[in-house]
């Protein structure tokens, strides 16, 4: 019996044609079954370091000028040394923005003294970005409703 030789190129072309014909019209409607965007992602409301000289009033502007000067001439050269988030300078700035220059200065003075206490920090504060201790000015507005829960939760004693 005579076996007819087939051209391998023809065979390959034939196979490619078959496969591609299926692939071209295969199911493309992946989108429907894919993951959807989660609309419940919380916004990051924390204020990052911003050198822009802006403020709602003269005290805000003065405080900003002071802190910008400190950042530019001292902090940036000295490095990232403050163990807290926000840093003491940012804490001062945020305190002044949230209250006034006098209360802001008192809040800063209090923070400065707390900064000196190196004991039991990990039990009092939550760890934030890069291991910083989370200590927002909201906690020190003498209003227990504004105290942020994570700070308090960390203090909860095991029962």
């Amino acid at each position: 019996m005579k076996i007819k030789k087939t051209n391998p190129i023809k065979t390959i072309v034939l196979i490619i044609a078959i496969i591609s014909s299926v692939n071209l019209s295969a199911q493309t409607d992946w989108e429907r079954w894919g993951k959807k965007e989660n609309p419940y992602i919380k916004e990051n409301k924390f204020i990052e370091r911003d050198y822009a000289l802006k403020g709602d009033n003269i005290t805000d502007l003065t405080a900003k000028l002071l802190i910008d000067g400190y950042w530019f001439f001292i902090s940036d050269l000295d490095g990232d040394n403050c163990p807290f988030y926000p840093t003491c300078s940012s804490f001062f700035l945020q305190s002044v923005k949230k209250t006034n220059i006098v209360q802001g200065a008192l809040m800063f003075g209090d923070r400065f003294m707390r900064d000196a206490n190196v004991f039991n920090r990990d039990k009092r504060y939550h760890s934030y970005m890069k291991g910083k201790l989370y200590d927002p000015p909201d906690n020190y507005l003498i209003d227990k409703k504004k105290v942020r829960e994570p700070f308090v939760f960390k203090n909860k004693e095991a029962k």
């Binding site: 209360q103 008192l106 003075g109 209090d110 003294m113 003498i142």
Partner: peptide, 14 residues
């Protein structure tokens, strides 16, 4: 001195 007074009141609220 004054920060300590303020901070104590704040700490009590915390």
């Amino acid at each position: 001195y004054f920060s300590s007074i303020y901070g104590s009141a704040a700490q009590a609220q915390i």
